[in-house]
Amino acid sequence: MTTLNIPPEKVWLVTGCATGFGRAIAETLLSAGYRVAVGSLSTSEVADIVDEYPETALAVELDVTNSEMVTAAVASAEEKFGSIDVLVNNAGFGFVGAIEEGEREEFAPMIEVNLYGTLNMIKAVLPGMRRRSRGHIMNISSVGGFHASAAFGMYSVSKFGVEAISESLSVEVAPLGIKVTAVEPGQLRTNFRGSSMHYAKKVIADYAETCGKTRSFIAETHGTQPGDPKKAAAVLIEIAESPNPPFRLPLGSDAYSRVRAKLAAVEEDIAQFEKQAISINYEGVVTESRV
């Protein structure tokens, strides 16, 4: 785990702290001396954390899809600690099923939490960050938010959306002193593949060799994932304290491999018809990249 010789001055708000990565982030921060607003659907789920750190931890009841609860949680954190310097949008869950298998009513709640919940939290903390001319928003995306795979299509819809929001936001708020990082974890050893994973009820036999293998892989590897959430949490601290944090942060050797593989595949794919693709402008028209 990374050892940091820095004063823990920043105030953090972390969502989804009842279990998994969110809990690991909160506990790692508090053990390092940071002040943390610990978000969960019920404060009873994080009572043990607050009991251990009564001076520096604040439990906030938080359903990220409920705008009133979001506003109240941000207000409580700012009232107690004076500011929110780092927001970690971690609350979320997964969904497995082929595009044809999943029904809207099955995956819509996931999109509501993963995507719209993230947006709700961002909009709630930005006024304070703009007033203070500082802040860092860390949106927990996924390697699946950069590289979609069989059976994770709808989950990737939610996480690709998080990446799009993050990318636009990073440009919008950079002049205001606010930083944005899209965190792309790979396989962390949490309960994400357990109770945090939802499945399409319909199973179509024709997808056995693609989505069926994904379902089997999830079941067979749950509890043996290579990524240590506590080590991942320590990296987030290092990123938050960096004067030049990255926008995109793959977390885990598997995530890094998948990101690099996707980049190589995209380059190979678009190169095939590059001549045709760039030939469609009217004569004499020159365009410039906005990146």
Rank of each mutant, 00 (worst) to 15 (best):
T214A: 15
T56F: 06
E283L: 09
V171E: 15
E61Y: 04
I122W: 12
S142T: 11
A232V: 02
V125T: 01
A18R: 03
T28Q: 00
K179L: 03
R131Q: 13
A232W: 01
K201R: 01
Y256D: 14
K213C: 11
K275R: 15
S166W: 04
E27T: 10
G145W: 07
A98C: 03
Q187T: 13
I218Y: 13
V88K: 05
V60C: 06
N90L: 05
A72I: 07
C211H: 10
T214P: 13
A271M: 10
S195M: 09
T28Y: 01
E288Y: 14
H222S: 14
L13S: 03
L169C: 12
P250E: 06
G186W: 05
G186T: 12
Q276K: 15
T221I: 00
K10C: 04
V88D: 03
I178K: 01
A75L: 08
P245R: 05
V36D: 02
A73N: 07
N90V: 03
F247L: 08
R189L: 04
T181G: 06
A174Y: 02
A205N: 13
A174S: 12
A148Q: 08
D85L: 00
A148D: 08
E283K: 11
E163C: 10
M129D: 08
E55G: 12
A277N: 14
A18Q: 02
C17F: 03
R131E: 12
M121H: 07
N5D: 10
G227Y: 03
Y155L: 02
V11G: 02
E55I: 00
K179W: 02
E167L: 04
D85W: 05
P175V: 05
S279R: 12
N120Y: 01
V183E: 07
M197D: 08
T15Q: 09
S42A: 14
A233V: 06
V74P: 03
V46M: 02
A233F: 01
G128D: 05
V291L: 09
N5W: 06
A57L: 00
P185L: 03
T28F: 06
A124L: 10
G102T: 02
S253Y: 13
